[in-house]
């Protein structure tokens, strides 16, 4: 049996064990109080049938199926399909991330190629990098005066640093001999940047971009909880206010899956630009 197959079997066994324990832990075992039917109607299933307050895997599965059947319905501000909510979040992440790419990669090139600029900018980066992206939120809201754009700004500010630092590092550590090849061939600065430095630094740059997309996806949930309105982060908070733990669990699952897909896309692109030596 191949390692892959064995690993798959263990994975499935772990999942089954997890679902089994979850099911057992949330099954109806509580005592049912004796009460008048009038009163029972006011109480939830927890009181009348001894059902656990925590939804079991079957409840979540059923609810998930419901969502998957109608992912894009729109019944007004507080009731939109999960597909729409995810699309909002992905659009915000995509926009903020794209702006970060446009800023970070050229700037990273500059920092990587010029020791002077590298040293001059370093203190700013060191101070700005550890700031939690959400700390920028009030400032963004105050200056931009638009909650949706503020969320995009927060995504931008959190994803710019790993890309910037990795680009600068990748560019600065291009093998000297490759630069020397370009120099002996009298290749101009711009052509050198595109034909030698960019391909040589691409794997490092892509690694930074991969870290960034992960952070951006982490941050969007928190940002949307703050700005509200739309998005998967808002959905989680809204469903918490509705006390729908089932929906919260479904949202958590979907956030994980989308995050994984985003990471996989970047991993694939990284593999495309990686060269064997």
């Amino acid at each position: 049996m191949s390692l892959r197959l064995r690993a798959a079997i263990v994975s499935i066994a772990l999942l089954a064990a997890f679902l089994g324990i979850w099911h057992l832990a949330t099954r109806s075992t509580g005592a049912t109080a004796n009460m008048s039917p009038e009163y029972a109607r006011l109480m939830g299933l927890t009181a009348t049938q001894g059902k656990s307050a925590m939804p079991g895997p079957a409840d979540v599965g059923a609810k998930l199926w419901e969502h998957l059947k109608r992912p894009f319905y729109d019944n007004g501000p507080n009731d939109k399909g999960l597909g729409i909510q995810l699309a909002y979040s992905i659009a915000r992440v995509g926009t903020g991330y794209l702006i970060a790419v446009i800023v970070a990669i050229p700037l990273g090139f500059l920092i990587g190629m010029s020791p002077l600029i590298s040293r001059a900018i370093d203190p700013f980066i060191q101070v700005l990098k550890p700031i939690s992206p959400l700390a920028w939120m009030p400032l963004a809201l105050y200056t931009i005066k638009d909650s949706s754009i503020s969320a995009i700004f927060v995504i931008f500010i959190c994803s710019v640093w790993p890309m910037l630092l990795n680009t600068a590092f990748g560019v600065a550590s291009v093998r000297k001999e490759w630069i020397n090849v370009a120099r002996t061939l009298e290749v101009g600065t711009l052509r050198r940047a595109f034909t030698v430095i960019l391909p040589a630094a691409a794997p490092t740059i892509l690694t930074g971009m991969r870290i960034s997309i992960g952070i951006a996806w982490l941050v969007i949930v928190a940002a949307e909880m703050l700005v509200g309105g739309t998005g998967i982060g808002y959905f989680v908070w809204n469903e918490w206010n509705n006390l729908s733990i089932t929906n919260v669990i479904i949202a958590i699952l979907l956030i994980g899956i989308v995050g994984m897909l985003l990471d996989q896309i970047l991993a694939r692109v990284t593999r495309m630009v990686t060269f064997p030596e």
Partner: peptide, 18 residues
């Protein structure tokens, strides 16, 4: 400076791997 009149063969061959 460098020139295309003077070609260098490097010890480590220095080929562009991509």
């Amino acid at each position: 400076g460098t020139s295309l009149d003077r070609a260098v063969i490097f010890q480590s061959h220095a080929l562009l791997p991509w």
